[in-house]
Amino acid sequence: MATLLHAIVEPGFFSSAPVRLAAEMGALVAIVAAVVGVFTVVRGQAFSGEALGDIGATGGASAYLAGISSVWGFVGISVLAAAAMELIGVQRARGRDIATGVVLGAGFGLAALLIYLGTLQTSTSGSTVTILFGSPFTLSPSDLPLVLGFGALVLVTLAALYRPLLLASISPELAAARGLPVRLIGVAYLMALAVAVALSAVTIGAILSTALLVGPAATALALTNRPGRALALAAMIGVAATWLGLLLAYDSYYWPPRHHGWPPSFFIVALVLIGYLAVAARRGGGRRGAR
């Protein structure tokens, strides 16, 4: 038994301090992303999530130009982008797609400029890789309180707005008939999404931020028809995928032929997708292809 466990968990996994920090931060952002993600999937705003994460990552990576903490840079730029989407018209379901796209395009353009200007200053363009793939788990322990604070802010906001947000996500019409400020609720949600996505982009990378936002939530929604349970399940799936992915990435240092560490983001994304496919396949066919 011990040898089996030893074969799965390579020695040193639990005693390594960077791994522990990664596991803590990863779990934290996985929970926040999964909880926000349930509403994202229900509201059909996966593209907004992806775009805000990308913009946060591209712009935020250039935060060092201004000499501020990257957490502030990511979150600030993502929130600004969310505000721009809102102003352009992200509320109408049909215009939302285009508004999101235009802001994302402009954001990418700006990022190209900032990176170029950054290269002029530092004569390296190493940040580009960080931008696209994120740089999982390179934050310092001193960033943990900031990440914790923003994460808590998102969760508290969602808890406070839980019922109105749920009703407005199910049917804006029913919410409006009760006199709820549907648009304001939408803005508050979009801001929470921006912070959550930027947070995961800065901690674990832009790819993972979308994967952890959409994957666990979509899987949980296929498994249960109770909103409270969907939230809890999504959070658990997110944390499980993150930890298992970290474990595999750690193990992969010992894998033949090269003894080269595979990136955690690959494992986590693959696990999230496998989980989703397993649940979707179990549920079987006969489902209409929603657009």
Binding site: R163, P164, I170, T224, P227
Partner: peptide, 20 residues
């Protein structure tokens, strides 16, 4: 795909406007 029972929607009729 909305993860919601009829029961939940009726409950939201009772207190869907409440915070928390």
């Amino acid at each position: 795909d909305m993860p919601l029972r009829g029961r939940d929607l009726v409950a939201l009729g009772l207190d869907g406007h409440r915070l928390g």
